[in-house]
Amino acid sequence: MKYNWNWGIFWQLSPDGRGTYLDTLIAGLGWTLATALSAWVIALILGIIVGVVRTTPVRWLRLLGDAWVEVFRNVPLLVQMFLWFFVFPELLPASVGVWLKQLPRSAFYTAVLCLGLYTSARVAEQTRAGIQSLARGQRMAGIALGLTLPQTYRFVLLPMALRIVMPPLTSEFLNVIKNSAVALTIGLVELTASARSIQEFSFQVFEAFTAATLIYMFLNLIVVAGMRWLEKRVAIPGLIGPGQAMPQAGH
């Protein structure tokens, strides 16, 4: 039994007529990055807002925030992908639904939206935990100084909370990149899908998967290094950096 390794495969032309298999891979990487980064922006903005809302004294806002997190976190990402891609357009007025379905790159937009919302729930959970890990006295001190509640969040609570949750946010960032592979189920030809299409056309399955795996690991390294640098840059003198964090379940 022998597998015929052929690492030269990446320089051969692919049957889609758009260049070599390497080009296929690079195009896939491009979509992975575009999807992951756009989704991450959405996730950060929404996640921080929802996380803040969950710590405010306003009861109905808190409930709304809790519901947001429970829904988007507890339904498998794949199911959410399908719901947004297949079911959501049916819920809209017919004309809008059709327009949505015929939108060029609708898989990309759907993936970004879905992944962004899914991740926002996880970012929200981290943000809430970060804010609540601050001593209650910090909020009191801000309020006692005469700051309004929004000012207290802006100048006192969030700057500390976001620093504290940087390590878990780093792993959420890594998760977004990895989770973007789920978008292949709705037809987005991102990195994993392009590796699979190489396998399908050329049968050089292990070369294609090895290349994709290496690229994912490389992306991982870049993100981790970048976040370390950022953490160091915003570190506060006199405070012990966040030590070995408790492990968290997740991907």
Partner: peptide, 11 residues
């Protein structure tokens, strides 16, 4: 107001 645990803003 002055608090028991100071509550200076660490950042």
């Amino acid at each position: 107001m002055v608090f028991q645990h100071f509550e200076l803003f660490p950042h």
